[in-house]
Simulated assay, not measured.
Amino acid sequence: MTKTKWALDTAHSSVDFSVRHMMIANVKGSFNNFNATIEADPTDLTNATIEFSIETGSVDTRNQDRDGHLVSADFFDVENHPTMNFRATDIEKTDEGEYNVTGDLTLRGVTKPETFVVTFEGQGKDPWGNEKVGFSASGSINRSDYGLVWNAALETGGVLVGDKVKINLQIQAAKAE
Rank of each mutant, 00 (worst) to 15 (best):
T2M: 13
K3W: 03
K5A: 14
K5H: 14
A7S: 15
D9N: 13
D9Y: 07
T10G: 03
S14T: 07
V15E: 08
V15S: 00
D16V: 02
D16N: 12
D16L: 03
V19R: 00
R20I: 08
R20V: 11
R20A: 15
M22H: 06
I24S: 05
G29T: 05
G29W: 01
G29Q: 03
S30A: 14
N33D: 14
N33M: 04
N33K: 14
T37F: 10
D41I: 07
D44R: 07
L45P: 02
T46N: 09
T46Y: 10
N47T: 14
A48W: 09
A48V: 10
A48D: 09
I50W: 10
I50G: 05
F52N: 04
S53T: 15
I54V: 15
E55T: 10
T56K: 00
D60L: 04
N63D: 15
Q64T: 15
D65V: 13
G68Q: 10
H69L: 12
H69C: 06
S72C: 09
S72K: 10
A73K: 13
D77E: 13
V78E: 15
E79V: 13
N80H: 15
P82W: 03
N85H: 10
A88S: 13
E92Y: 01
E92P: 01
K93F: 04
K93P: 00
E96S: 01
E96N: 03
G97I: 00
E98D: 08
N100S: 11
T102W: 00
T102I: 04
G103S: 11
L105Q: 04
L105I: 09
T106I: 02
L107N: 08
V110F: 04
K112P: 04
P113C: 06
F116E: 03
V118G: 08
F120C: 05
E121F: 02
G122E: 07
Q123T: 11
K125A: 14
K125V: 09
D126M: 02
W128L: 14
W128M: 13
N130I: 13
N130W: 09
E131Y: 07
E131A: 11
V133D: 00
V133T: 04
G134P: 04
F135S: 04
F135L: 14
G139E: 07
S140R: 09
I141L: 15
I141M: 10
N142A: 13
R143W: 13
R143K: 12
S144M: 12
S144V: 14
V149L: 02
V149I: 13
W150M: 03
W150I: 01
L154I: 01
T156G: 12
G158I: 06
V161A: 08
G162M: 09
K166P: 02
I167N: 01
Q170F: 01
I171Y: 09
A173R: 06
A174P: 02
K175G: 06
K175P: 06
A176T: 12
E177C: 05
E177W: 08
